[in-house]
Simulated assay, not measured.
Amino acid sequence: MIIIGILVLLGAAWSFDWRTWLGDKTRHHLCFGAAIALVPLWMLQAGVKPGLEVHFLGLTTLALLLGWRMGLMMSSLSLLLVTAFGFESWPMFGPNLLLGVIIPLSASYLLFLLTYSYLYRHLFVYIFVAGFFNAALTITLKTLLFSGFMVWTDQHSWQVVVDNYLSVLPLLLFPEALLNGMAITVLVLFKPDWVCTYRDRDYIINK
């Protein structure tokens, strides 16, 4: 899994516009600040079985704020820091990278692209669909992926996963959606130029 994850990150880095990014110091602070902000969020974990810890993701906000390529790189940096601090194990770095970062963030960005392409472009659509509901779907996907991984690798039985992991998911959906929805709302209202997936001309002007 770690090889697949590294290949995806290399592909994202290869196709990224580094020249523009390197010339924008504000963007540097924003990207690394977003990566650091995820670290304490991911450190706040709860769980009763090894490998079945739950925490808020914040990946939808990162995907909308930084875009797919930089979002992947910065969230991977967050995972690296959390693992280095001992809150995640190094043997699980590959699964955490692929199942906990790359696939959920990519799915979140894909849903944004679908809303941008097929739904009416309005501020409330951006906040509630691309932000709020998108975040709930993202944490659902991540939880299901890890559930399948734990059962597939025989680390836990399906019943243990259901009782100690999937049963907590309904309690996480609304807080995760609210966290990301509020973050995106504040950003597009006060710092819309920070959010690379948002433009006033698409969602407000001439509406």
Rank of each mutant, 00 (worst) to 15 (best):
R121K: 15
G86Q: 02
S157P: 13
F87V: 04
Y120M: 12
T61E: 06
N96V: 07
T143L: 08
H55S: 11
V39P: 07
G71N: 15
V82R: 03
T60W: 05
L72Y: 05
F56I: 08
E88N: 12
C31N: 14
P91V: 09
Y126N: 00
A84C: 05
T26F: 05
L114Q: 01
L105F: 03
K25E: 01
L111N: 04
L111I: 06
L44T: 06
G47Q: 12
L64S: 05
F56T: 06
Y120I: 13
F133K: 01
M43K: 08
L144D: 03
Y120D: 08
R121G: 10
L80D: 04
C31H: 09
Y109E: 01
L30I: 14
L64K: 05
A84I: 04
H122W: 02
S106D: 07
L62N: 15
K142D: 09
F149Q: 14
H29R: 14
V129G: 00
M73P: 07
L97E: 04
F87Q: 06
V48L: 13
L59D: 13
V162L: 15
M43A: 13
M74K: 04
I103S: 06
T83L: 03
S108H: 03
S147F: 15
K25H: 02
L64Q: 06
L41P: 01
I127A: 00
F32L: 15
I127C: 01
A46T: 10
G131Q: 02
V48P: 00
G131T: 02
V160Y: 06
